[in-house]
Design a binder for these strands. Structure first.
Lengths: 347, 347
DNA sequence: GTGATTATTTGGAACGTTCCAAATTTTGTC
DNA sequence: GACAAAATTTGGAACGTTCCAAATAATCAC
């Protein structure tokens, strides 16, 4: 009725108290008498009051908003990561700005700036390729904590949470070697990324430990997508000395590899062993179920959010670098599928 | 330096003008002299000023924030939808709150309330199952436009954008019948949803038109996921009179059906025809490429966002119900794969 | 009942912006 | 150079909250 918006003052008026008291009630302060609290709450419900956080943020400092920007939301890995973040952020009473950069660094800059104007009190970012350490300088200078996930940025003075890519790839190779494979390919991924380098490093290391010579022909870099996987098998099968197994850059590539194998009348898990990386949700239900390095993207999202909230609350912005442990989940696609009850980790 | 935050007043001071002038510059007003504008902008850059939208919103009404809530972000369909929304929202200078409900109606209520407190000026929602028309009443009462996508809610006085489920399923059946199939199953999806009912309706209608008797055994409802697809083939293949083709509730189910077929040594597109629904991004690159009803989730997201922005800007909140046309994209999984150059629509 | 405690409540004064009406400067005309 | 018109600039007064210091009310001990 009056004007439009119902404000604390209207409530105060209707409840016969001062606006300060209403404010106290809103914040759940213990200073206020039980009877008045009840009355105020009743009036609040009655008038359909909605809290105006914008106004509140003007006085307070803590905004109950965090930002999360990912480089490719259409990739299940990042979608799950976002869901993980959402879960903890939501139950902490925060709300998240989420934006997709599509690997565009300009877009990333824009959305981060925009989020900042909107007053985020923290940022989780899976940086677009080519992001520099300086890009988050202004955030951290302003005391806004930043957590980088998935892809690390050398030299950035912010917290990071990445998975143990080296150990993961290494475990995959070790497992395949244990099954008797000698021609093990590394398929998919863009060669000029840190993640690629780390996983390839683990691959080479494990190869060496297993006494298998590294063969440059067996690493075939493609887009880290399903289509890239199809392409990768195609290229690998042109070799004179064909591989009999592959560790893939990620699960999307692995699925593509399976598709490509079948297009050649080879059955993954029978005629050729494939292991993925990430343990995306479909990995378990696919046929054959994908043997993969479990990164638990959702769990990673949750951990990232927890780390961020911790930093927001503690006020101190000291960088913390966490590398998250991974473990190989053996299912059917590697041909060792004895234990079909293997389940994904939910930490 | 001074306190912490740089404000318009600091800028005004440093530039030797009044705060009002700075404000004018910020808004790109044409009232201000070119020379002063330049000076002010220089100072802004120099002092590292960041605009405080929260404060601005206190005075203005339009908040440059929209909310989007989806029921399952881990489903590529919704992830792509969100990306589509993000694209247009971003380039309109807005920023989006995104939340995932995971089909929980309580969570949905919470996040919508929270978004509202944060001052969204519009909401796009793919409602959780069981959402009622009344749930958005308070939003619309406050003049905040709401656009419902994907799943319609009968009786809700808000705009909606859904795909033509009836026509899509119908086209799929017609196509399969045209290829000579008589035992066509309908696989996947929860039976008690509007979308299921619409698609099943299209299926039955097309069956009738093709002169094929409807067989209750051939509709096998399961979860609308990859695992559900696997389950569906399993059940269908137990029938005495087995199907030779299936139209699936969505692409996830269709992929599951392919998996299940292969687990039975049947090759999709050769021994059994499968057509999906949605045209998720992987549909094109999967092997065999999936014949599916193209819903173009990203395009739908874009359209929803455009519709919402239009309503926000025009100020009038009159509901508009759009049913988005779909078209069958014939690829390989239906066995008619002659034209391999079929491409997805990007409107 | 009195003074001291403790428990509640309460008016401003912020916070950083935008808006309005009015003031000032510049430009143009004769 | 005086006057009008146009262009530019500018002080408050909002916006809806939270804080603070201080006021008031309730309770206690004697």
């Amino acid at each position: 009725m009056n004007k439009g918006r119902v404000t604390v003052i209207d409530i105060a008026h209707a409840a016969g108290v001062s606006k300060s008291t209403v404010s106290l009630v809103l914040q759940g302060s213990s200073l206020v008498n039980e009877a008045t609290r009840a009355k105020v709450n009743a009036v609040i419900r009655e008038l359909g009051y909605v809290y105006n956080r914008g106004a509140a943020n003007l006085r307070q400092a803590k905004s109950k908003i965090v930002g999360i920007v990912v480089n490719d939301l259409t990739n299940s890995f990042f979608a799950e990561l976002a869901v993980g973040v959402d879960m903890v952020v939501q139950s902490a009473g925060y709300v998240q700005f989420l934006s997709n950069t599509g690997e565009s660094i300009d877009r990333q800059r824009e959305v981060v700036a925009s989020m900042r104007e909107h007053g985020i009190s923290g940022l989780i970012v899976s940086p677009a390729r080519g992001t520099e350490a300086a890009d988050f300088k202004s955030l951290t200078n302003a005391g806004i904590p930043v957590v980088i996930v998935v892809r690390n940025i050398p030299g950035a003075k912010v917290s990071s949470l990445v998975s143990d890519n080296f150990a993961g790839a290494s475990a995959a190779v070790e497992h395949l070697a244990g099954l008797g494979h000698r021609r093990i390919a590394f398929m998919g991924g863009f060669a000029n990324t840190a993640v690629f380098a780390e996983r390839l490093g683990g691959y080479r290391d494990a190869l060496a430990k297993a006494g298998i010579a590294f063969d440059d022909d067996l690493v075939v870099a493609t887009a880290p997508s399903r289509a890239g996987g199809v392409e990768a098998v195609g290229r690998a099968m042109l070799l004179a000395n064909k591989p009999t197994a592959a560790v893939c850059f990620n699960d999307a590539v692995a699925f593509g590899v399976c598709d490509g194998l079948r297009a050649r009348r080879l059955e993954p898990g029978v005629d050729f062993a494939v292991v993925g990386f990430d343990d995306v949700i479909e990995a378990e239900s696919a046929v054959p179920a994908l043997t993969t390095v479990s990164v638990d993207p959702q769990g990673m999202g949750r951990r990232a959010a927890q780390l961020l909230l911790k930093q927001i609350n503690s006020g101190k912005v000291e960088a913390e670098a966490i590398v998250s442990a991974v473990r190989l989940v053996v299912r059917q696609s590697c041909g060792a599928g004895l234990d079909t009850t293997a389940r994904r980790v939910v930490s």
